[in-house]
Nucleic acid binder design. Structure first.
Lengths: 152, 152
DNA sequence: AGGAATTGCGCAATCG
DNA sequence: GCGATTGCGCAATTCC
């Protein structure tokens, strides 16, 4: 980068780049709201660019601008990074969900098995034997499952 | 906003705002790499601001700049929104994890209860009675729990 | 009243 | 050669 910015830089007329100009801003009146602007004195319709005070103000503002832009850029970067962090966390959470789901599934299978063996040991009374011996609990993809209906 | 930009605007020297200047860019040589810059012809060290072609280039560039900045801003906004979306999703996932954990806890309690009643029904043989009657399964905050050790 | 912070804009140098 | 980026300064506004 370079950024000679051509314009009106030198604090004075130090004469380094051979640049010269005399813009002379003339805002005519610089009023938009139409309020009452006591033009008392009318100042000098030409903002003396050569004024010491003017240059100081400009320089301070330029500094502020640079600072503001730096922060703006930094913030953008931070936001981007936040996105990455959140993405990672999301994956971790999803992994955990997969794990918990699997555990739940296993436990439910164990439960069914137990229920069946208990039913088997009770031959005399209540003779009932469901068809399929089940195979892997209820694989409900994503519906809270609620254990099994009861047991909220 | 205004953006008189002080600078060198008028396509010509139509003289409307009383602005006047004679910047005369003189990059001296505009060389940094120190490579060989065949100064053949040497062109005109002064870029005629009044050139028709110059104004066209500037105008096109200004347009491009505006466009670029718009996109940049848009991108930043999108990124910010992405953060919000990810945050929401994160909360959803965490809620789901809480739910699954609770279900798991309940199931484990049921399991223990069953185990105990089964042990109770077996009085004669294997006379063994652990101390505490357990109270609410294993509340391991966040360690995969692995159901109970076995059953990977 | 006033300075710092923002913001829109144009310029010029670079980049691709 | 040209559009896209980028750093910078200016000026108007806004914020404090």
């Amino acid at each position: 980068m370079d950024q000679s910015g051509v314009g009106v830089i030198q604090t004075q007329g130090h004469g380094s780049t051979g640049l010269q100009q005399v813009p002379q801003v003339v805002p005519s009146d610089s009023r938009a709201g139409g309020k009452a602007t006591p033009p008392s004195k009318a100042k000098r319709s030409t903002i003396d660019k050569d004024s010491e005070e003017y240059r100081q103000r400009r320089e301070r503002n330029n500094l502020a601008v640079k600072k503001s832009r730096m922060r703006s850029k930094q913030k953008a970067q931070d936001t981007q990074q936040r996105v990455n962090e959140l993405k990672e966390e999301n994956e971790r959470l999803e992994a955990k969900i997969r794990l918990l789901s699997k555990e739940l599934s296993v436990l439910k299978d164990l439960f069914l098995e137990h229920a069946h063996s208990m039913a088997d040991s009770m031959q005399p009374l209540c003779a009932e034997a469901p068809g399929p011996r089940n195979q892997s609990s209820n694989h409900n993809g994503g519906g809270s499952s609620q254990v099994w209906g009861k047991l909220n």
